[in-house]
Simulated assay, not measured.
Amino acid sequence: MEATGGHGPVVLVEGESDAVVVRALLARRGAAADVVPMGGVTNLAAHLDPLGGPAPHVLALVDAPEVRFAVGALRRHGVRAETLEELGWHGVLVCDRDLEDVLIRALGPDAVLDALAGMAELGAFESLAQMPHWRGRPVAEQLHRFAGSGSGRKSRLAARLADRLDPAALPDPLGPLVDAVLAMP
């Protein structure tokens, strides 16, 4: 990736399914940004390097269990940030668990099940839900597991769920991310 030199916003995301969601939400709000899947948060520092490190035009979306990598990436660039608030000051926005969890909680299990039905994936989900390890668990947990299984399912489901979000009432950290891009020159 080449440094943007302040020419436009860059949003670094962990993977392709995250990029699908962020691109869709930005497009719906008329915001333009270069959304870059990093291939995992462990690559954040390497993606910040050609951008000159953390900068006002650079945002990153990371999962809570991976915050330590974001903290390390910022330190590598001379920025000390320990709390979620401090990370936010430097453009790092954190999903409570991960983006799939944010989407499932924001929309509710029924909307996710409806999206799966529209993808002709409901039968496959019901099979997973009946497996001994998953039987009796909360539907949201089953959906979270199912979203990450199957080739390409995560991105396909992410696109469907992004389309169902109300652009005027996006959940954290998606709302603040979109607002930050919209506020950039």
Rank of each mutant, 00 (worst) to 15 (best):
G53A: 07
P54T: 08
P56G: 14
H57R: 01
H57Y: 10
V58H: 00
A60N: 03
L61S: 01
L61P: 01
P65C: 03
P65E: 15
E66P: 00
F69N: 14
A70E: 04
V71C: 11
G72I: 08
G72T: 09
A73H: 05
L74S: 13
R75T: 14
R76C: 00
G78H: 12
V79F: 00
L84K: 00
E85W: 00
L87Q: 13
L87C: 11
G88W: 08
G88M: 11
W89D: 15
V94K: 08
D96R: 07
R97D: 13
L99M: 04
L99Q: 02
E100N: 03
V102P: 02
V102Y: 04
V102E: 09
L103P: 05
L103R: 09
I104L: 12
A106G: 12
A106P: 10
L107I: 15
L107A: 13
G108F: 06
P109T: 13
P109R: 08
D110H: 08
V112L: 11
L113T: 01
D114L: 05
A117Y: 07
G118K: 02
M119Q: 11
M119A: 12
E121D: 11
L122Q: 10
G123H: 09
F125T: 09
F125P: 08
Q130S: 15
P132L: 15
P132Y: 05
H133A: 12
W134G: 00
R135M: 04
G136A: 10
R137S: 12
V139G: 03
E141C: 02
Q142D: 07
L143S: 02
H144G: 09
F146A: 13
A147I: 06
S151P: 05
G152Y: 08
R153T: 06
K154H: 03
S155D: 07
R156Y: 04
L157Y: 09
A158L: 07
A158H: 02
R160M: 15
A162M: 04
A162Q: 03
D163I: 01
D163S: 13
D163E: 15
R164E: 15
R164H: 09
D166P: 07
D166I: 01
D166R: 01
D166H: 02
